[in-house]
C-alpha cells in the first residue's frame, strides 16, 4: 500500500512506476509535480522510477484554472 497526497491509500504492486500510478489514477493533466518520499521525480524518469511499498507520494497538479 502507498499513500497518495496524504490521504488516498493505493494498492502497491511490485515494479509500480510513476507512469503506471498516474495512469491508474486517471491523472491526465500534463504538468504535475511528483515527489516520492519527498524527492522530486522529473517527467523523463516517470517510466523507470519504481515506487517502493509504503511510499508517501505527492501528486501536485499545477493547475490554478481559468
Amino acid at each position: 500500500m502507498i499513500r497518495v497526497n496524504n490521504r488516498d491509500e493505493v494498492d502497491w504492486r511490485e515494479g509500480l512506476t510513476v507512469s503506471v500510478l498516474l495512469d491508474r489514477l486517471g491523472y491526465t493533466y500534463p504538468h504535475i509535480v511528483v515527489t516520492v518520499d519527498g524527492q522530486v521525480v522529473y517527467e523523463e524518469e516517470y517510466d523507470r522510477r519504481v515506487i517502493p511499498d509504503g511510499a508517501n507520494v505527492r501528486l501536485i497538479h499545477l493547475i490554478a484554472g481559468g
Binding site: 501528486l59 497538479h61 490554478a64
Partner: peptide, 16 residues
Amino acid sequence: QHDEAWLIFMDMVNNE
C-alpha cells in the same frame, strides 16, 4: 466568477 480563486485541484485532488 473563477478569476478570484480557483482552488479545485489544490483542495480536491492535491489535498493541500
